[in-house]
Amino acid sequence: MAEPALGVAGLVKSFGALKATDGVDLQLNAGEIHALIGPNGAGKSTLIGQIAGTLRPDRGEIRLYGRDVTHLDASGRSRLGVARTFQVSSLVDEFSALRNVMLAVQGRSRTSYRFIRNVMNDRTLVDPAREALDRVGLSKRADVPASELSHGERRQLEIAVALALGPKVFLLDEPMAGMGPDGSRALTGFLHRLREEAPILLVEHDMDAVFALADRVSVLVYGRVVASGTVDEIRNDPVVREAYLGEPAA
């Protein structure tokens, strides 16, 4: 495919004097997992926020399959096929797990201005939502309010919600965080297959997962991409080892 799924060019974002994003160029191609790693505070979540449309960049451009989406807000970008998960799970807490996913199905189908039919009897919402819950292994907890789910279950629900959007691009902000070793391993297997559905920009601190999954890795430090390449290239890059993996240059 000629156009990358996602193209970020010359992106800049400052919080006061702090340059959280400092001239970032990044591409995500169809069928790939592109991992974004970097130390705490490097600006990974800030970058995800700008791509998802919740944060406005000061400068630069974001393209989705060639189309300039920089001027669109978060809901506009979601409608074009950007699905993001939040580093800190961000769900509708009073709603059950099922209803959280149903809301995503509803958002995807753009049918929020219907006033009559009871959503719980609406199979066009319930069935796809159950399917998404099933895929992440959360079916048994479908009727539990999101606020009463465990931390790991909330992370799974975030993924189910993203799946239900049927997106063209996934932005996953630390999906493994706090999942435990078993959870991480299961999710790694899941993401491995998910890239067939849509490419994934994956922010992750879990290096085992990153090295197992990523087709490409970019390293972000102080808002700049200091290195970008295959897993092997990144592993052996002396700058990366020093700046991020915390080892002295060989």
Binding site: A83, V92, G107
Partner: peptide, 8 residues
């Protein structure tokens, strides 16, 4: 924020 992320 979640609602906007779902395209609404």
């Amino acid at each position: 924020v979640r609602v906007a992320a779902l395209g609404m």
